[in-house]
């Protein structure tokens, strides 16, 4: 059974008074242990795919299905998908003043443990683990007492997403342009974190504009998304070809 299976997915974005179709019959299969890079021009539907899989409000599924290890995802509430093992690394992580990072992470890890019938981790141990993870991603552990993402630079917000990825250890990680706005040093830290997360039992969908990230996170497959469908798939050499030629030769 595939880790993620998306079949014939049609989805629209809901704006004030209308719906606009974005995904128009998308198929994607991710097996455990694989990293799939999704590339494509602006407006092709990359972020919509991430948002529909994770359940962000404002989208409507018109047709098709998505399953995680065979369990249908699209009917579930966002928190239920997360409890099943879906993780979205946000393109624009949200600032939440008044809720400390530590409190947020504890609430998350406790919810996941409860949903899976596992024991909630001991608080002291948990806090030590989080501090170590933060340090390993060049995040000052002092930030853990501050509000979620409050006053973080763009790079710090992205590293915080990766820290959550490592802490929550989901089955499927969907990274939505995690490389955007990062300088080369931050990019390496993020990539190193993703590589640390990779294992034979989980999968990664890596949405990116640029080939650069793929120098550090080497994908097993590269897909080109255009006008709501995957129009080309290949190995990592496809990304290099796209870098050289742009998207025009495909579309």
């Amino acid at each position: 059974m595939s880790l993620l299976n998306v079949s014939d997915l049609h989805a629209s974005v809901i704006t004030d008074d209308q719906t606009q179709p974005i995904l128009k019959g998308l198929n994607l299969t991710v097996e455990a242990g694989e990293v799939h890079a999704i590339m494509g021009p602006n407006g092709s539907g990359k972020s919509t795919l991430a948002n529909v899989v994770s359940g962000r409000p404002g989208y409507q599924v018109d047709n098709g299905a998505a399953t995680l290890e065979g369990s249908p995802l699209l009917e579930l509430e966002p928190y239920e998908r997360a409890q099943l093992g879906v993780f979205l690394a946000f393109q624009y992580p949200v600032e939440i003043p008044g809720v400390s990072n530590m409190e947020f992470l504890k609430a998350s890890i406790d919810s996941l443990a409860r949903a899976r019938g596992e024991e909630q981790p001991n608080t002291a141990q948990f806090m030590r683990q989080v501090r170590e993870l933060a340090s390993s991603l060049d995040l000052d552990p002092a930030f853990l007492k501050r509000g979620v993402n409050e006053g973080f630079s763009g790079g710090e917000k992205k590293r915080n997403e990766i820290m959550q990825l490592l802490l929550l250890d989901p089955k499927l990680a969907v990274l939505d342009e995690t490389d955007s706005g990062l300088d080369i040093d931050a990019l390496k830290v993020v990539a190193e974190g993703v590589n640390r997360y990779r294992s034979a039992s989980n999968g990664v969908v890596l949405i990116t504009h640029y080939q650069r990230l793929l120098d550090y996170i080497v994908p097993d497959f590269v897909h080109v998304l255009s006008n709501g469908q995957i129009i080309e798939s290949g190995d990592k050499s496809l990304a290099l070809e796209l870098e050289a030629k742009g998207y025009a030769w495909l579309t």
Partner: peptide
């Protein structure tokens, strides 16, 4: 409650009620 903030918490597996409570508590704690 900010829908963006709510979705951020939900996407980490925190259920609707707990997420709303966290956000309203954070609003006052400031």
């Amino acid at each position: 409650i900010s829908q963006e903030a709510l979705f951020y918490l939900l996407s980490r597996g925190i259920d609707q009620g707990a997420a709303q409570a966290l956000l309203s508590q954070g609003f006052l704690r400031q």
